[in-house]
């Protein structure tokens, strides 16, 4: 008996036609935008509460043309990449060794797990006291927010490398150092890439929080100033720019994984 089309679309874990998949996404996005237009242009909510798409666009054009948007975006990007890169270059090797060597795990796991459960937002006042509200504070917040999460996620990845891969390498004549460089490191690379991609999203959160609390520039600061000046359209510009940058970063990570680790993406 042939199942109905609708029935076929709602089977757990089963593929659906590509066209339907595509149009479902477009329809939902368009509906959200349509509702936004309806509420604002239809006069259902006030413009002070929710700005209309046209106003947001106008705010985008004006902040872009007077250079404020680019200035704040550049500051935020600089802060986030510096903080994220600093965190990653320490967390990746340390996480790999923590997952690969029990002795490293025994040494740093207690500290890492303690720090991991401290919300970084609770540390912001202390950080302001220590390093002020400049670049150092943003870097510190992003670093503390992502580092301990990265290390735990990466340790989990490297801890899952199958024993047989080590064993077969030893029987092929690998030294212990070769097992680390030729098995442990390559085996963890896909998981490391995924971890970086996920934690990059968190880094954005910490950055904006840090900028909202104390800053003199950056997208978070721009949003805060817009709130103070009762300029909701500019708030929306800030939100859209952050969302857009996040999306681009995510795509860049996916692209990098396909290029650097082609074997993860073939069937």
């Amino acid at each position: 008996m042939a199942a109905g089309t609708l029935d076929r679309l709602f089977r757990p874990n089963k593929p659906i036609p590509r066209q339907i998949e595509l149009w479902t996404g477009i329809t939902v996005a368009a509906s959200v935008f349509g509702l936004w237009c309806l509420f604002t242009y239809g006069g259902i909510v006030s413009g002070d509460f929710l700005p209309a798409p046209g106003e947001v666009w106008a705010a985008f054009v004006s902040t872009l043309s007077d250079g404020t948007l680019l200035k704040h975006t550049r500051v935020s990007l600089y802060e986030i990449y510096l903080g994220f890169v600093l965190s990653s270059i320490i967390a990746v090797p340390l996480g790999i060794f923590m997952g690969g060597f029990r002795i490293v795990a025994a040494a740093i796991e207690p500290v890492v797990n303690f720090m991991r459960y401290l919300p970084v937002t609770a540390l912001i006042p202390l950080l302001i006291l220590w390093v002020g509200i400049g670049l150092e504070q943003k870097i510190a917040v992003i670093f503390l927010g992502t580092f301990f999460q990265q290390i735990v996620l990466i340790a989990d990845v490297s801890g899952r490398v199958h024993d047989d891969l080590y064993n077969v390498s030893y029987t092929l004549g690998a030294s212990r150092w070769q097992v680390v460089t030729r098995v442990l490191l390559p085996a963890t690379m896909p998981g490391v890439m995924d971890t970086l991609r996920v934690t990059m999203g968190w880094a954005w959160t910490f950055l904006v929080v840090a900028e909202l609390v104390a800053a003199s520039s950056g997208l978070g600061y721009m949003i805060l100033q817009a709130m103070r000046g009762l300029h909701p359209a500019t708030i929306f510009v800030g939100i859209f720019v952050i969302g857009f940058l996040g999306l681009v970063t995510d795509l860049a990570f996916k692209w990098a994984k396909n290029v650097l680790l082609p074997w993860t993406n073939i069937r």
Partner: peptide
């Protein structure tokens, strides 16, 4: 040399690089 039930090939290496693994070490 050992052969395991779980194949234990290196998924990041091609067939050729897998076979050459011991020699390259």
């Amino acid at each position: 040399g050992m052969v395991f039930q779980s194949y234990s090939l290196f998924p990041w290496l091609t067939v050729r690089k897998n076979v050459e693994f011991g020699l390259s070490l």
